[in-house]
Nucleic acid binder design. Structure first.
Length: 259
DNA sequence: ATGGCTGGCTCCGCCAGA
């Protein structure tokens, strides 16, 4: 089974690439983030034509996540149980589904903006709620993973230049401690191999030639429980998908599972 | 070929992304 996560930065703008990539990659289960669409705008019909169904959590302009599967779609949970609100809104940042032998969450962790911004405290509360929500599945015997855009670089090797991130979000001890809490709950970082260069970056800013200069970050993560990690036979970043006109600023992370 | 932001929305600038 081939499973992947990809921040597509608008499902509407990315639809041709999304459909083409699903077909060319042979992905069975794809967790997507940043749909930027209303429920009515989600392309269920186009996906169904390729044999996929989708569990969607979206409300409009910002955020939005989905699990797209051709391996089954059961026991859907929409939204993060016990998750915090931001400015009185429950943002669409999580959706879960069981796809055949595997259960997955597709998550879009809040960005945080600045370390002294209310959004940063919201980010930490969100990650704590995520840990609580997935603890039971993380400790269970069924292959389980939380895939998505975590907006945290787990180590200094996961950014192109640590000195460029002084005082910035995504690299702070508090954010990394939240990831450590997830690992404590029974999940491990299924680190992909890069298809080029030394670091398996998953995101490159659109600005200032970020991609050609490989000024990237590894912030799209696959955190799997022990049965999931054991079943993983390969994992890689499909950086080819970051190339060309109409690319997302994130590349897909792909995991092959023997299940 | 991988090229100096992009997408969506309320409207022709602004916010958010990280």
């Amino acid at each position: 089974m081939r499973i992947a996560t990809w921040n597509i930065n608008s499902v509407t703008a990315r639809l041709p690439r999304l459909l083409a990539w699903l077909e060319s990659s042979g992905t069975d289960v794809l967790c997507v983030q940043e749909l930027k669409c209303t429920p009515a705008q989600f392309p269920h019909e186009e996906l169904r034509a390729l044999g996929y169904e989708a569990a969607v959590n979206a409300v409009g302009r910002w955020n939005g996540v989905a699990v797209i599967s051709r391996a089954g779609l059961d026991d859907v949970v929409t939204g993060l149980p016990g998750g915090p609100v931001y400015e009185d809104a429950e943002e669409p940042r999580a959706v879960a589904a069981t796809c055949g032998p595997v259960r997955v969450w597709s998550v879009y962790v809040p960005n945080g903006r600045e370390v002294d911004h209310p959004h940063f405290a919201y980010k930490l509360r969100w990650l704590e709620a995520l840990r609580a929500a997935v603890a039971e599945d993380a400790a269970g015997g069924r292959p389980f993973a939380v895939l998505g855009d975590y907006n945290v670089a787990p180590t200094d090797d996961d950014v192109w230049d640590r000195s460029a991130f002084e005082g910035a979000t995504h690299v702070t001890p508090a954010e990394r401690a939240a990831l450590a809490d997830l690992r404590e709950a029974g999940l491990s970082d299924v680190v992909p191999r890069p298809l080029k260069y030394d670091h398996p970056f998953t995101y490159w800013d659109y600005r200032q030639l970020g991609f050609p200069k490989n000024r990237g970050m590894r912030i799209d993560l696959v955190y799997g429980n022990a049965p999931f990690a054991k079943a993983a036979s390969d994992a890689y970043v499909d950086r080819e998908e970051r190339k060309g006109k109409g690319a997302s600023d994130h590349a897909p992370v792909v995991v092959d599972l023997d299940v």
